[in-house]
């Protein structure tokens, strides 16, 4: 028997009430129940960061969070970064610097970067490397990703 529970979560500003299987992760529910497939699945053990989302503003691996644990939380996914079709400064910087190659890790990178900049609007290179160390990129566009995060931080200052 599969136990389910109702949860209420605010996802990208929209309040949702859902019935979720208690053994399903937030990643499962975002992708399979809400159709928010921007959040990616790769290692499912918290090592690659492809599934990074914000829960109440903190970057977490959604593969290691049960959906029931997110009950009452505010969740932001990559789909929530742009407003009214306008890209966020971070998204623009990723495009501008060529940070997205195959693109599969990019939603996770963006969310980790978003959390980093919210907490530390003027990061050093070392801060960015540390802040994104949990997000693997096999195209290894780390330098472009880092440049993009720094550029977004600078743009916010101006």
């Amino acid at each position: 028997m599969v136990d389910t529970l109702p949860i209420a979560v605010t996802v990208n500003g929209r309040r949702r009430t859902l019935e979720v299987a208690v053994h399903h992760t937030l990643l499962d529910v975002l992708r399979d129940q809400l159709g928010l497939t921007g959040t990616k699945e790769c290692c499912v053990v918290g090592e690659c960061g492809a599934c990074t989302v914000l829960v109440d503003g903190s970057a977490v691996n959604s593969c290691l969070v049960l959906a029931v644990e997110a009950d009452g939380a505010e969740v932001t996914t990559v789909e929530g970064l742009a407003t009214d079709g306008r890209l966020s400064p971070l998204q623009n910087a990723f495009l501008e610097k060529g940070a997205a190659q195959c693109g599969f890790c990019i939603p996770g990178q963006l969310m980790a970067a978003q959390a980093l900049l919210a907490q530390n609007p003027h990061p050093t290179l070392t801060d960015v490397h540390e802040g994104l160390a949990g997000n693997l990129c096999r195209c290894a566009g780390y330098q472009q990703i880092t440049e993009a995060v720094m550029a977004a931080a600078e743009a916010a200052v101006r």
């Binding site: 903190s58 970057a59 977490v60 691996n61 540390e130 802040g131 949990g134």
Partner: peptide
């Protein structure tokens, strides 16, 4: 202990 994401949990 792991990445930022891990340390947040």
């Amino acid at each position: 202990v792991g990445s930022v994401q891990i340390r947040n949990r």
